[in-house]
């Protein structure tokens, strides 16, 4: 699991990698949660809530951004950070998942949105999946 922070004048940007697409999505979620509250998911000992999500998009890159947007919205509405995810269906354009969240007191950073800008899921020479994600903060 590799998450690298990049520089972007306006926002927070990360480069994320995964062995498979589902791994990439999990790592991207971890990257987003680390912006909301650094290290929170590393110390979570219990889940307080679980939600079902279903996301359908026009491409795998859009699916990743829409997946993160969906969970970000849930974080704000449920006042929880969703560190756990179980995919019951995962294809190029659609996923169904159960996400597990833990309630929190205060975010460290407020992410306004996950942008599609410069996001592009591709295969690296090493056979990993990678993309850059820019967060509007």
């Amino acid at each position: 699991m590799i998450i690298e922070h990049l520089s972007h004048t306006a926002d927070e940007a990360i480069k994320v990698e995964g062995f498979g697409l589902d791994d990439l999505f999990r790592n991207a979620l971890k990257g987003m949660n680390n912006i909301l509250k650094k290290g929170f998911c590393d110390t979570v000992k219990r889940f307080d809530c679980q939600m079902q999500i279903e996301v359908e998009s026009t491409s795998k890159t859009c699916l990743l951004i829409d997946f993160l947007s969906e969970i970000l919205t849930l974080s704000y509405v449920q006042k929880a950070i969703f560190c756990g995810v179980y995919f019951s269906h995962f294809s190029k354009n659609k996923l169904v998942a159960t996400v597990y969240g833990t309630w929190f007191d205060q975010f460290e950073e407020e992410i306004k949105a996950i942008t599609y800008h410069e996001a592009h899921i591709r295969r690296t020479e090493k056979g990993l999946w990678e993309t850059c994600i820019i967060f509007d903060v």
């Binding site: 026009t58 859009c62 829409d66 947007s69 919205t73 704000y76 306004k112 949105a113 996950i114 599609y116 509007d136």
Partner: peptide, 17 residues
């Protein structure tokens, strides 16, 4: 605040399709 952020997110997604 979050309301405006969500409106933008919802409609960028809609418009892309």
């Amino acid at each position: 605040r979050g309301l405006g952020h969500q409106v933008a997110t919802d409609y960028i997604r809609k418009m892309m399709s």
